[in-house]
């Protein structure tokens, strides 16, 4: 009896978390009036919505934009964060914990609080409606996050390794790039993956700092699909687009589940 109840609880949990996504898939495979019938699986599944998403608008372009911005931002953030996290994690200097806290607090900024300042900056640099400008603004949340998480990983590396290297006369630069960097592979993967997902999912800046269809990222493209008239939302297409951009994320989560968990908990539990 107890076991049965527990199994039911687990089933309910899985149903709750997975059903909306399942329903999006089912709806995306329906076209025309079939969309308005509630059924567990479409009687006549069709890929018409998927074709329409890519034909009707530059959705392929949006995916490319999102990929370019997210991977660029992750690359730059990790590069800047590796050396910075060494300094914060392994070098004793005055004001270190205050600095670390200040960096963490930047990632707590409400995005809206920097919106007008960033707008001015982006426009002054001539980067309005450009992926470069968008990437620049994303540093405000990817950089503090990567620095924070990598610092906790840096602290866990064995002290003996560093001491031996110092005895051999290695400079801090050599220690970071030659000795620690190879050991940080899994940490970099976990941190990079989380930062990538955050950048891929970002909406407010992408909505504000880009203007034309060909510069949109995926979340903006999907949000604006339902723009014009409230009565003729192309729900089938919205669901198809949602499935297209979510499947790779779910694949990433399934494959790198352990890494993601280690990155998330390193960022939070030890904080």
């Amino acid at each position: 009896m107890k076991r049965l109840l527990f199994a039911l609880l687990l089933a309910a949990i899985v149903f709750y978390t997975v059903f909306p996504f399942y329903w999006a898939i089912v709806s995306s495979l329906k076209s025309g009036s079939a969309l308005f019938i509630v059924e567990a699986w479409p009687a006549d599944p069709t890929l018409a919505n998927y074709a329409a998403v890519f034909r009707g608008q530059p959705f392929g372009r949006s995916i490319l934009n999102s990929l370019l911005v997210a991977s660029g931002v992750v690359g730059v953030s990790l590069a800047l964060a590796v050396t910075a996290s060494y300094a914060l994690g392994r070098v004793a200097f005055r004001g270190r914990s205050l600095l670390l806290l200040s960096i963490l607090s930047v990632s707590m900024f409400p995005q809206v609080a920097v919106l007008s300042g960033l707008f001015e900056l982006v426009r002054a640099l001539g980067l309005y409606n450009s992926l470069w400008g968008l990437g620049l603004t994303y540093m405000i949340f990817t950089l503090p996050f990567t620095v924070w998480v990598l610092t906790t990983f840096m602290r866990e590396l064995p002290r003996e390794l560093e001491e031996a290297a110092i005895v051999d006369g290695a400079t801090p630069w050599v220690i970071v790039t030659r000795i620690f960097l190879p050991l940080l592979g899994p940490a970099l993967a976990a941190t990079g993956l989380l930062a990538f997902i955050t950048a891929w999912n970002e909406f407010l800046f992408a909505l504000t700092f880009t203007l034309t269809d060909d510069r949109r990222t995926v979340p903006v493209a999907i949000a604006l699909m339902s723009g014009a008239s409230a009565f003729e939302l192309p729900w089938g297409q919205v669901m198809a687009a949602s499935v297209v951009v979510t499947v790779p994320l779910i694949a990433l989560v399934l494959v790198f589940q352990r890494r993601i968990v280690s990155g998330l908990t390193a960022g939070a539990v030890k904080g």
């Binding site: 978390t17 996504f21 997902i197 909406f203 979340p219 903006v220 999907i222 951009v245 979510t246 989560v253």
Partner: peptide, 12 residues
Amino acid sequence: AVLIPWAIPTVV
């Protein structure tokens, strides 16, 4: 499976 909603973009 429980992680899935977390990975899905808020907009989606």
